[in-house]
Amino acid sequence: MAETKKDLPKGGVIEKGGTAHDYYTGGWRKLVPVVNKDKCTNCMICWVMCPDSAVIVQDGKMIGFDLEHCKGCGICAVECPDKVKAIKMEEEAS
């Protein structure tokens, strides 16, 4: 972000890439995805389908969700294969 509002770039252009990472959309969430790692086969379909790149993968394994960016859309829970169904959408803890 520019120093002052006067310095904002003409026409609302954002002058660098990857800025969506700095915008925390986790606050939009109503339902939170919860993964059962006993069932999960690490097929990575949830990682492919997540529109917010909020599925965290480490060393080839799905290890959870980036809740600062997950909007709780539930696509991961739907796309998790029928034989597995390792992801459930639950109410956010109040």
Binding site: K6, K10, G11, G12, V13, K16, G17
Partner: peptide
């Protein structure tokens, strides 16, 4: 000044602006 095709300097055109910035752009 800028080009969407300049992949060395990626930029976003037409992003949303809210109460804190929209009016500034209109003023400009």
């Amino acid at each position: 000044e800028r080009s969407l095709l300049d992949i060395d300097h990626p930029s976003t055109f037409g992003a949303m602006t809210l109460q804190d910035a929209y009016m500034t752009f209109k003023h400009q």
